[in-house]
Design a protein around this nucleic acid. Structure first.
Lengths: 223, 223
DNA sequence: ACCTGAACACCGTTCAAGT
DNA sequence: ACCTGAACACCGTTCAAGT
């Protein structure tokens, strides 16, 4: 049958490779769409079949780890340790947080994982360098690096989740004030009185406050 | 046609109600199965059609908020404020963390949301009471409650995520040590030297360390 | 060697139909 | 009034088939 008829248009998929795939993922992940990184959508962005990605990454997990490491490496680009260890420590943690929050759908997944790749190595080496400069011995530095890194990762995953929730998150805050206003007088007096202030707290200033307290706490460990 | 033939067996669904549904959810959510709380599985647990749940909850979000609030209320059961505000503050935060971590699939979702229901009200009221006792005025107490609560929620969501990852998480730690061992000598010397200690840090002690630093930081605010 | 596309086993949710 | 079950639009992943 129709051997000369036009076949379904098959694009040669432009020499797909890991770099091109990661670039496409970054384009899709910038912003707050929770389901931006499905294989079908990445495929569409690349003009290729979704399953073509399996030629280059063994599964979605491997793709996301590569993506997370790349994002972190981007965030550290240009970092220079300064003379004040507190400033440098805060700089590193803020850089990591900021680059992940630029790609919230990467952050939610990356927060829980160890990539063991370049970006992470840069980050860990820099963190340990700062803590050494502060005067911590290597065992304490390792321990404090973990508490700082996991604090930042946990909170950044949390914040990324809020960004991905989008409207639902701001609606929650409004519902918070609204429903506390309906509480019979005398019940939960402290909570009712405080709800407006509590609901107005912005996540970014809240993180900054926590980070300040944490770093102050670490400083007391230097004796 | 066969009007007398036996119809497909239809169980009357036992007077389904919100309480019974939440009980079933708790049974399913106890443990570390990431996909334990699908409507199909909850339906099976109840011996009812999955879509019957829509008679009692408008959507999955409403169900999860109700569930989260119930879990928190359970965790606070028996709480009594003590004389030492630091001890009480730590008690409250640990209780909330512990009850959520018993139901990791609830924790990952609950961490990001405000339920505006009973359990949350108890928690907020208790927290503000402790901070008032410590000597903070109401505006500072509101502010510090949020930093403590979000710190706990963020880290608990993080820990719940690790539990749901299960093996993948412990594999990550092993891969961490393994891959750093392969790094050419001279590259990333601090990271390579510290990786064993870093990979041995347990999440629970790490959270405890962070909480200790945070509470110490808060204490300095009392001047 | 690399890409395609149908298929599989899952999701949450909607809605007409049953009792 | 309440429950059922087929259907819809999504997932990640597998695998035989195409070029």
């Amino acid at each position: 049958m129709n051997t000369t008829a036009e076949p379904a248009p098959r694009r040669r998929a432009h020499g797909l490779n890991r770099e091109k795939i990661l670039d496409a993922c970054l384009r899709l992940a910038e912003g707050s769409a929770a389901d931006a990184l499905s294989f079908r959508k990445i495929g569409k962005e690349l003009g290729a079949d979704p399953t073509a990605l399996y030629r280059h990454f063994s599964d979605k997990d491997e793709l996301l780890l590569a993506l997370a490491d790349r994002v972190l490496a981007m965030g550290l680009d240009g970092y220079q340790p300064g003379e004040n260890w507190k400033v440098s420590l805060e700089d590193l943690l803020r850089r990591a947080r900021a680059c992940f929050l630029r790609y919230p759908s990467v952050a939610t997944l990356a927060a829980l994982r160890v990539t063991s790749q370049e970006g992470e190595l840069e980050f860990v080496e820099s963190m340990l360098g700062v803590l050494k400069l502060a005067g911590f011995d290597s065992a304490d530095a390792a321990r404090i690096h973990r508490v700082c890194a996991d604090f930042m990762l946990a909170w950044t995953g949390f914040s990324a989740g809020l960004l991905l929730l989008g409207e639902k998150s701001t609606e929650d805050d409004k519902a918070w004030v609204r429903s506390y206003a309906k509480i019979p007088p005398g019940d939960y007096p402290l909570a009712v009185a405080a709800v407006t202030i509590m609901a107005e707290v912005q996540d970014e200033e809240n993180f900054a406050f926590a980070l300040e307290l944490l770093i102050a706490g670490i400083a007391t460990r230097l004796g």
